[in-house]
Nucleic acid binder design. Sequence first.
DNA 1: AAAAACAATAGACCTTTGTCCATGGTTTAG
DNA 2: CTAAACCATGGACAAAGGTCTATTGTTTTT
Lengths: 114, 114
Amino acid sequence: MRIGELAQKSGVSRDTIRFYERNGLITSTVEDSETNSYRNYKDDCLVWLQFFAGAREAGMSVADLRSIVESTAESCDRDVARAVIQRKIEELKERADQIGNVVRFLENALSGPK
Amino acid sequence: MRIGELAQKSGVSRDTIRFYERNGLITSTVEDSETNSYRNYKDDCLVWLQFFAGAREAGMSVADLRSIVESTAESCDRDVARAVIQRKIEELKERADQIGNVVRFLENALSGPK
DNA sequence: AAAAACAATAGACCTTTGTCCATGGTTTAG
DNA sequence: CTAAACCATGGACAAAGGTCTATTGTTTTT
């Protein structure tokens, strides 16, 4: 799949896809056989991009995403991957708790001053 | 209270406090009577700053915070304030849900590939 | 074949959220 | 009184995360 299709299907802009690729979040191949230099993306890029979109919204940084992607790479130790991801899960849960606090503060602000 | 004390008590740096003030998140007064131009902060600035710290961590932008602060200002209609805050609460809850999704995705990634 | 649509790359540019000077006054402690 | 500590202002600088433009080459459509 080429970048346009990927962008359209994932809802992530071409520029952002290229940006992510430059930052090691996804990879693509340039077919030698082709006369062009168009990049080719596999289906799992789409899955990743959808995940990225949600994860970014949830507050994860691009660096976080890269470490997750890297940890799930072939070459990487399963246990290392687990540890990295487990760590991120903890962080996310903390963040969710923090959001809970803020929500309570705001709800209190609503009910507090009559 | 002067900025140094406020910074120390809130854990927010002087520079950041000034930045927030420039952005309308807090206000201060400069006593005419004084010979200096030192700013004076009321106790509620401390409460706000503590809230800001948590809210920023929870992923709220400075612009979000400004709209909350503005909505709770004297001049502002109680109901308008409620609406603004209620909206932010919804956004935060959505964000928390989003985090939940990401966590599930990650947990699945952990258990999925055995 | 010619135009329209798509792609690559490089680099400029933008916003957000601060942080870090430099300069020049003011206060406070010794 | 003098040095150390504090404050204000203005502007430079920074990192993250994109976005936009220019240029040039490739497909696809008509």
